[in-house]
């Protein structure tokens, strides 16, 4: 066991964890407010990556500098993912607010299937190469052999997003309304919170972070297809549950734990069973500690 290999796995896990965190935040926020497993959230991430690819491809042909392309592609991806998230909520979830939970979940699965195949048919079933938008920073040269600059950028962006979201939820009016809605929707309505707007806002925020994750990871890995959302979505969901669904710091901790454990598992034990490991993790957590690390215990009410 040499130290450098360990360090490499550690950083690899941190990268995975950061991306999971960006997606898991959306899951956990939506669950906290509407108590719905937004199964199609992974698809929003995928659509973000695709929009990013299209915009980046166009701008590359025009010969823009890489960093400018990255910024514009990220912003475009965020705008479009927000739009998709918002529309999805209006079509597939809003009419089902009062319906049984399972109906909403089935509707979410349908939405996920729809979006996957929509991108498959409108774009392509093949893997598309994603342009490498993140330049190698000069000042990172001494540690280049263990951490690429794209990884450093992912950590930085994730950290900034976490802090911004936390501040948004702690200090703005909207954040306050969101917290109120997640505690008790009816009571929030009674004190004049526009619950519909809060729910829309939650979907928009979650979609934006997922899109950011999509563009960053696509640029880091270098290729995308229509199916990337499913696995990423499930794993981020595992992370959100692990941390305690509904809790934002929990989602981050859960994502990092999942990222590291996956990275070490594949590095030291077996890379064939990487996804099996993630699913086992999911099953074990849900069975033994469904409330997660930071989650509050829920009991059924009559």
């Amino acid at each position: 066991m040499d130290l450098e290999y360990f360090f490499e796995l550690f950083l690899g896990g941190l990268t995975r964890g950061s991306i999971y965190a960006l997606i898991a935040l959306g899951y956990t926020m939506v669950y906290g407010i509407v108590e719905l497993i937004n199964f199609a959230h992974g698809e929003i991430y995928m659509i973000g990556a695709f929009t990013g690819l299209i915009v980046a491809g166009l701008l590359t042909l025009l010969g823009w500098p890489a960093l400018a392309i990255l910024v514009i592609a990220s912003i475009a991806a965020m705008i479009y993912s927000c739009a998709y998230g918002w529309t999805m909520e209006k079509i597939a979830y809003k009419p089902l607010r009062k319906a049984p939970r399972l109906s909403a979940l089935i509707s979410a699965i349908g939405m996920s299937l729809f979006l996957q195949n929509y991108v498959l048919l409108a774009q392509t079933p093949d893997f598309l190469p994603f342009p490498n938008l993140i330049p190698e920073f000069d000042f990172l040269e001494p540690i280049e052999h263990i951490a690429r600059s794209s990884e450093i950028l992912i950590y930085a962006v994730t950290a900034v997003v976490m802090v911004t979201l936390t501040l948004l939820i702690k200090f703005t009016r909207m954040g306050k309304a969101m917290r109120a809605t997640s505690q008790d929707r009816e009571m929030a309505m009674l004190v004049g919170v526009n619950v519909n707007r809060v729910i829309s806002m939650t979907f928009i925020l979650g979609s934006a972070t997922a899109a950011l994750g999509g563009v960053l990871i696509a640029s880091h890995i270098g290729q995308i297809n229509y199916y990337i959302g499913f696995l990423a979505g499930i794993k981020a969901f595992v992370a959100a549950v692990l941390g305690g669904i509904g809790s934002m710091p929990g989602a981050v901790i859960g994502s990092l734990v999942l990222g590291w454990s996956e990275s070490f598992f594949t590095g030291y034990i077996s890379s064939d069973y990487e996804d099996v490991f993630a699913f086992l993790f999911l099953v074990v957590i849900l069975i033994f500690r469904p409330s997660g690390i930071l989650g509050r215990k829920e009991s059924d009410k009559v």
Binding site: L36, I37, R101, L102, L105, I234, F237, V241, D272, Y273, D275, V276, F279, L280, L282, V283, L286, I287, P290, D300
Partner: peptide
Amino acid sequence: PVLRLRGDYLAIVTLGFGEIIRLVLEN
């Protein structure tokens, strides 16, 4: 093992089991 779980968690765990069986068969 999954009987104690609530409806939507149950759905996700069964999904996990299904994928585990498929991935094991594949690998």
